[in-house]
């Protein structure tokens, strides 16, 4: 770009200078837009800090208050003593972790089978599973609910409404996960798999000793993807739980919106308490998070 002929050097340098000042003005504008959207993205979540530390009265006071006049801790106190917030948080952890772990196990196993093993009807079966790739929870919500209620009787209460297995298992099925794992395993050099077979390893040993250690990145990405999806899940937990023993955060917080009176300070406090840990985790593993979300969409 900077190759200048001797003769018309002066003109070109002037042109270059003018266009560079134009360019810096443009980049300042684009910077401003990005900053604006950063504020829009982060601002609302930051603002929640203020109502979390104010009592209900000050929330609706006039003239409005922007910042707490005193550090009111009543909302947090209420949340920790009068509600089952801690229980909900634990349940969310159990639910999201449970779904993630089971999904990772069944998806990597099935992904391996589809990527590396030969069996009759493989293509048909994979096509069938792929066909359900996009089936939303909402569309099978009602029959799934019904099924889990029936399972209650059939499994003697092991899998049912208001049980963790009943809450977790239906969410573990994700054709997308199998697809992602299969794609990843197919990118591993087939020679490794063949070398291990020659070396006498069984499919199980190849899977655990050779394939699994090489799949770490894919497992982290899928794990974050599933965890994020389930930790935010409202619809299924709302349907599958009726008691605080199995209720998760999303459902619990939505029950804080009372039928008649809602204590908004408490809701703000609950939201804040929920966002802080996930934000910390996110900031530590941001690269993986970003990769997981984009991978989920792009790799389909």
């Amino acid at each position: 770009m900077k190759v200048l002929a001797d003769g018309d050097g002066q003109d070109l340098i002037a042109l270059e200078r003018r266009s560079s000042s134009l360019r810096s003005a443009k980049s300042a504008a684009s910077y401003a837009v990005l900053v604006l959207f950063t504020i829009i993205s982060v601002g609302p979540a930051l603002y929640i800090i203020s109502p979390a530390f104010r009592d209900s009265k000050s929330l609706f006071s006039y003239p409005p208050q922007w910042l707490p006049s005193e550090f009111f801790l009543g909302n947090f106190q209420f949340l920790l003593t009068q509600t089952n917030y801690v229980r909900w948080a634990m349940n969310t952890l159990i639910f999201a972790t449970g779904v993630t772990l089971i999904a990772l196990v069944i998806d990597t196993l099935a992904g391996y089978a589809f990527a590396r093993m030969q069996f009759p009807l493989k293509k048909t079966l994979f096509g069938l599973i792929l066909a359900t790739l996009m089936v939303p929870t909402a569309a099978v919500l009602a029959p799934t609910y019904l099924l889990v209620r029936f399972l209650d009787d059939w499994t003697f209460g092991l899998v049912g409404i208001d049980t963790f297995p009943g809450l977790i298992l239906p969410m573990t099925v994700s054709p997308l996960g199998v697809f992602m794992m299969r794609q990843f395993i197919e990118t591993l050099p087939p020679g490794l798999y063949e070398a291990a077979r020659i070396d006498g390893a069984s499919e199980w040993r190849i899977f655990t000793r050779i394939v699994l250690p090489l799949m770490k990145p894919a497992i982290v990405v899928l794990g974050i993807f599933v965890f994020m999806l389930q930790w935010a899940n409202l619809l299924w937990p709302l349907v599958a739980t009726t008691k605080d023993e199995t209720r998760v955060l999303t459902v619990g917080i939505s029950t804080l919106q009372g039928q008649f009176v809602t204590n908004w300070g408490v809701i703000a406090a609950a939201t804040l308490m929920t966002l802080v840990p996930i934000t910390v985790v996110f900031l530590f593993f941001q690269k993986w998070f970003v990769q997981a979300s984009v991978a989920g969409a792009l790799k389909q």
Partner: peptide, 29 residues
């Protein structure tokens, strides 16, 4: 099955297990 044929195979791109040390690679079979 391959292992019971008692034949060793040397691959064009060696197919060494990338996450194992040389010792573990040789010891694997």
């Amino acid at each position: 099955s391959p292992v019971n044929r008692n034949a060793a195979f040397v691959f064009q791109n060696y197919a060494l297990y990338p996450h194992m040390s040389v010792r573990k690679n040789i010891a694997f079979p």
